[in-house]
Design a binder for these strands. Structure first.
Length: 890
DNA sequence: CTGCGATCTTAA
DNA sequence: TCGTTAAGATCGCAGC
């Protein structure tokens, strides 16, 4: 901290940031790089120098007094670029939000304001630092004033100026007058450069000095030029000369920054998409740990119970030995019901030797006491990713949480669709609380069992922070969900889905290690053979899995014609290889190699690793807060992309088998996307087709090719199917031509015909895109939102992508809504009918159950009713069933 | 060695 | 430079 006054040349740094930083836009497509660069400079100044006194000066739009003296002042400058102009108000707004004194005056420039302030303050003996890189401001340097350029981190005092320019700072004005300034269109004396000026000023002292002595100079080109341009030189000086009488505070208090308006600042940062700045600039504070209590005795546990008895909501977080449910053991539970207090109940903390530490209640004692609350169907529980806590308690503590399970992660997913992180600590930071990071409490976060070795006291603070933070978020998001009309979706769809997904994950699905083992050997043999053959044909060894090396072989060594190019080289994908297959043996072998290698690595080897040795089953994770459309996603393993189209793929499916004496029942929605499209578009032909149970692809084909349905070929149907799918994705003629290997012209004729047939669909697409343009987002039937920040941008590619998304998301998202509703209906319905069928998988439009064969007929009835009646559309929902002893089709 | 982007493939 | 949504393997590069 110093008592120097920092005067920042705001406008100069706006320009520098604008040119120095690559274009950047926020999520709405507004350019932000100048703002970003400027704020970085300002923030670095604040951080590094911690100035006690600081002010920023800006130019204002419009003519300045220099134009009166010299109308051509800056006449050669192009107008401010549009994408910079729109950023200026944000910069000024940010400086105001930071509560830094900010000066601007109509008719004068930032330089003049700085000059006035520097002179006024230095005449009072105050130290001044001019923050600028502009040489024009160097003339302000004196024994009290220095100039600092943060970009170069260089301080210029009198000595530095003299060393660099060989004149005194106060002589710089006269130097510039002679030299002129091409960037400001100030003429000076033509043909006089820095070296000449240096000589002249050093010899004669000043501009006046030069002209007084001019007559005595011997005849030369220089003398001639000086004589001819005397007026210009003096005019230039009047133009360049800084104005020292701008109105600026005379007292230091006028340069004293106040505490920032953090709310406004964060709001601006968020709008600009500067997430890193939101973090650093927030007024966030550590969570107050005063009300955090350890529960180590029965008496203390009883007092917690008494407290929860009066509560309307129980916030819970479990600490365990692993993120993976199947290997997680309980280490402790934290609870709270309001922001006054929170409790941590340790049950599994260990000493270094692995022995349980003293001062912990028995896990059973704790769960017996809490069970009435956890299992209460009345008392809502709240957690951040509560599916995990539900699963741990069910799996390792035999305690099944009931009642609504509110989840702040899901709340944030719905309320702020499209936000990048949903992690508790990041969300809390945006709500002004800094949480202790997991890495701060465990020594080696990667090693297993780690939380068990955290000290009990420290664990208490850490864990209680999490329930406290979760409650803080809930108090913010619950009203927000209501405001945004998302509360019903949250309560009636996402919340009841949580235990269903958890139970599906816990159930898992049996995978025969034996079958996989077999496949692995077989695939490996063929892969080895193929690799040898390919290397043989190539004449040298290379990595077949490297697109780069493969490209060299195919297109350079073999000289085959290359297709499209990628950013890094030639494309070698299946489409390209297919086209080369008839020219050379290698491409076909590569294709076969690719197919097998993919199956081998993704579906055989890694699937084998994920088989739980105890249960012989794999337990996927169904992620509820990942996709932009509202679909679920599945990981570890991804059970939603198990191969199906190829023969080998189907062999992998054969490894998925039901438990002994059980069968799989798969129920999939027929054409759900197109039915949703029919409902949204109200297209007469589409509605009619579905209402009459027609084969929609066949019907489309018959109309498209103008043939009777009886004469349709499978090729015609395939084309129609492609178009039907393409429509759902907002496809162009280019996309279709690519897909069908036909010309663009042919493709566009198909599309034209399609829209002629289904005029309502075309109309619907136009309407959705137009509405998205107005709202900036689209919604599904259950009001789920997706933001489309690019929907109105100038960039055609990005805008058109947003337009396709606007068309696709309501369809895909509504289909996702529907199957979620079906899941919520079907699980209790099966239970009510005393059927033992267990839901195992959801694959976007399909549900897979495991059940005794004897219950097949009755289960199908229940499933059919639940799925087909999930939501009432203007067309029927139709479900098809398949039964099998594995997941293989056919 | 780790992290990350690009490419490619799998599914709906 | 062109049909949506995902997960995941591998390569190859940049940085430590």
């Amino acid at each position: 901290m110093t008592d120097e006054v920092y005067l920042v040349d705001g406008s100069a740094y706006i320009y520098r940031a604008y040119h120095a930083i690559a274009p950047l836009t926020n999520s709405e497509g507004m350019p932000t790089h100048a703002v970003f660069g400027f704020m970085n400079i300002l923030r670095r100044l604040l951080k590094d120098k911690k100035p006690q006194y600081l002010a920023v000066a800006f130019d204002m739009r419009g003519p300045v007094f220099r134009h009166d003296i010299y109308p051509n002042y800056k006449a050669n400058r192009p107008p401010m670029p549009e994408d910079l102009a729109v950023q200026i108000p944000y910069i000024k707004e940010l400086v105001r939000a930071m509560n830094i004194p900010c000066f601007e005056t109509q008719g004068i420039e930032a330089d003049d304001i700085i000059a006035s302030a520097a002179q006024l303050l230095s005449s009072q003996g105050k130290k001044v630092v001019v923050v600028s890189g502009d040489k024009d401001l160097l003339q302000l340097v004196n024994e009290h004033v220095v100039m600092w350029d943060p970009m170069k981190d260089k301080v210029m005092d009198i000595a530095a100026v003299e060393e660099k320019y060989h004149v005194k700072p106060e002589q710089l004005l006269d130097c510039y007058s002679l030299m002129g300034d091409s960037s400001d269109n100030v003429p000076g004396v033509p043909g006089v450069g820095p070296k000449t000026v240096e000589k002249l000023i050093n010899q004669y002292g000043s501009l006046e000095g030069v002209y007084e002595e001019l007559a005595g100079m011997k005849k030369s080109k220089l003398k001639e030029r000086l004589e001819e341009n005397k007026e210009k030189a003096f005019l230039s000086r009047d133009v360049i000369r800084l104005k020292y009488d701008a109105v600026v505070p005379a007292e230091l208090s006028g340069y004293l920054p106040q505490e920032a308006d953090y709310e406004k600042l964060n709001d601006l940062y968020t709008r600009l998409g500067f997430s890193s700045m939101v973090k650093e600039e927030s007024k966030a504070i550590p969570v107050p740990t005063k009300g955090f209590k350890l529960v180590q005795t029965v008496e203390e546990l009883n007092s917690v119970v008494e407290h929860i008895n009066k509560a309307a909501l129980l916030v819970i977080d479990t600490e365990t030995t692993s993120l993976d449910v199947s290997s997680a053991a309980l280490v402790g539970i934290s609870l709270c019901t309001d922001l006054e207090s929170a409790w941590y109940i340790p049950v599994g903390h260990c000493a270094e030797d692995g022995c349980l530490l003293e001062g912990q209640l028995q896990q059973a004692t704790v769960l017996d006491a809490l069970a009435p609350f956890l299992e209460s169907t009345e008392l809502p529980k709240l957690g951040h990713n509560i599916k995990y806590d539900y699963s741990v308690l069910k799996k390792s503590c035999n305690c099944t949480m009931q009642g609504p399970l509110y989840d702040t992660m899901i709340a944030a997913y719905l309320a702020q669709p499209g936000r990048r992180s949903l992690k508790l600590d990041e969300l809390c930071l945006e709500h002004d609380y800094i949480l202790t990071a997991f890495d701060q409490v465990v020594e080696d976060p990667k090693s297993e069992n780690c939380f068990a070795y955290v000290g009990i006291k420290q664990a208490c603070d850490y864990s209680c922070e999490d329930v406290y933070g979760t409650l803080v978020l809930w108090q913010a998001y619950e009203p927000l969900l209501k405001e945004m009309d998302q509360y019903k979706l949250f309560l009636d769809v996402e919340t009841p889905l949580i235990p269903i997904l958890a139970d599906m994950e816990l159930a898992g699905i049996t995978v025969s290690g034996k079958v996989l083992e077999h496949l692995e050997e077989e695939f490996q043999e063929e892969l080895d053979t193929l690799r040898e053959e390919i290397h043989e044909l190539a004449g040298y060894s290379f990595n077949i899995q490297s697109p780069k090396q493969l490209g060299v072989l195919l297109f350079e060594e073999l000289g085959l014609p290359h297709g499209r190019k990628t950013k890094t080289g030639y494309s070698t994908d299946m489409k390209v290889l297919e086209k080369l297959a008839h020219r050379h043996e290698i491409p076909a072998k590569i294709m076969r190699y690719r197919i097998l290698a993919k199956l081998q690595s993704t579906y055989v080897k890694s699937l084998k690793k994920l088989i739980n040795p105890e249960s012989g089953r794999v337990h996927t994770s169904f992620n509820q807060t990942v996709t932009a459309t509202g679909r679920l996603s599945s990981s570890n393993p991804n059970m939603q992309n198990i191969p199906i189209r190829t023969r080998e793929g189907n062999r992998i499916r054969k490894a998925f088998i039901p438990r002994e004496n059980l069968v799989f029942l798969s129920a999939d929605y027929s054409q759900i996307d197109l039915r949703v499209l029919a409902h949204f578009s109200q297209d007469a032909a589409l509605l009619h087709a579905f209402q009459n149970g027609e084969d929609i692809h066949a019907r489309t084909a018959a109309e498209l090719f103008s043939v009777s349905p009886l004469l349709l070929t499978s090729e015609m149907r395939r084309v129609a199917k492609s178009i039907n799918f393409g429509i759902v994705y907002g496809m162009s003629s280019f996309g279709l031509s690519n897909q069908l290997n036909i010309s663009r012209k042919e493709a566009s004729i198909f599309i034209e015909k399609y829209f002629h047939l289904y005029g309502g669909v075309k109309e619907f697409m136009g309407k959705v895109v137009a509405q998205a343009g107005i709202d900036g987002y689209v919604t599904t039937l259950l009001n789920r939102r997706r933001m489309l920040p690019d929907i109105n941008v100038k960039n055609k590619t990005r805008r058109e992508f947003a337009e396709r998304t606007a068309i696709n998301t309501p369809i895909q998202g509504t289909a996702a809504d529907i199957i979620k509703l079906a899941m919520i209906k079907v699980v209790p319905a099966l239970q009510k009918e005393n059927l033992s069928a267990r839901l195992l998988l959801q694959i976007h439009d399909e549900l897979v159950f495991e059940l005794p064969e004897s219950e097949l007929a009755e289960t199908q009835k229940v499933v059919k009713v639940a799925m087909e009646g999930a939501l009432k559309l203007d067309v029927p929902l139709v479900v098809n069933f398949e039964v099998g002893k594995s997941l293989a089709k056919g």
